[in-house]
Design a protein around this nucleic acid. Sequence first.
DNA 1: TTTGGATAGTTGCACAAACAACTATATGCC
DNA 2: GGCATATAGTTGTTTGTGCAACTATCCAAA
Lengths: 146, 146
Amino acid sequence: MPNNQFKKGELYSFITGKASTAIARRLQKKFNTAGLNITIEQWSVLYHLWKQEGISQQELCNATFRDKPSITRLVDNLEKLNLVKRVASENDRRINLIYLTKQAQKLQEETMQLADETLNEALITVPPDRIDVCKEVLQIVYDNLK
Amino acid sequence: MPNNQFKKGELYSFITGKASTAIARRLQKKFNTAGLNITIEQWSVLYHLWKQEGISQQELCNATFRDKPSITRLVDNLEKLNLVKRVASENDRRINLIYLTKQAQKLQEETMQLADETLNEALITVPPDRIDVCKEVLQIVYDNLK
DNA sequence: TTTGGATAGTTGCACAAACAACTATATGCC
DNA sequence: GGCATATAGTTGTTTGTGCAACTATCCAAA
């Protein structure tokens, strides 16, 4: 019975992701307060495009751990907000390459600042070595299930 | 700069809750495979009702960390599935007390078994003391933000 | 060269979440 | 008692998610 030592109370939080939900809500509120008219989910797409733009929707699926219809609609809404542009690939006409607009480039610094702030508030009382353990466990969980 | 030592990569996972999303998806698949016609969100409401039924929708809001409209609609759908019943409180006619049907009582054992199984799969390679640290950190995060 | 399978993306549907605005009931204070 | 305020729950709207079914394009093997 290798890992059956969690009691029922823990089970619930793990499955429902109470902590990450709380973090996401806090960050969303910061976006709203700052007058930034984007959702956390839209931000999570921009996050990857800031690292590298001009990637396909499929690559965004892999990066954000979402399915294709979800990315289609997130890109739809980001396009409506004038934050990204779909550009058909020259080599493979099935593929849309997604590029950032100037407006989206301007959002990077402010939103990343707010995200850092949110995590600092969330983890303020937690010693760094415990954060590391937590992070590693969550990564293993993800790898075990993906 | 007390807790500013996480690198960008970690930030993303913390905010998007990759691990808990993966756990929830795995459990949902187990429900589907077992022919159990309920969502994880519905299960999370039943979870609290199995611990104590006859509580109000507001108490379900607090227990499940959801707002009132979300609970209204989850209870709507659970009622459609014949899993719960709204009963108006005698003392305070604003309040609906939520009771489980016999059908819902039957679901408890099987679904809890599948949830345990899911967590075992998620945590199979993680030493118990690291699970404890992770759990504690997530609880602190939640307390810091709620 | 054609055809069959794989891949990229879209659309429809059901369910859920967040927010604002609303109704109904209860409670406290004059 | 009557009114202001708080509380419990509902409804409408927008956004996001997961699944299935669909179109378009590509590629490889006969």
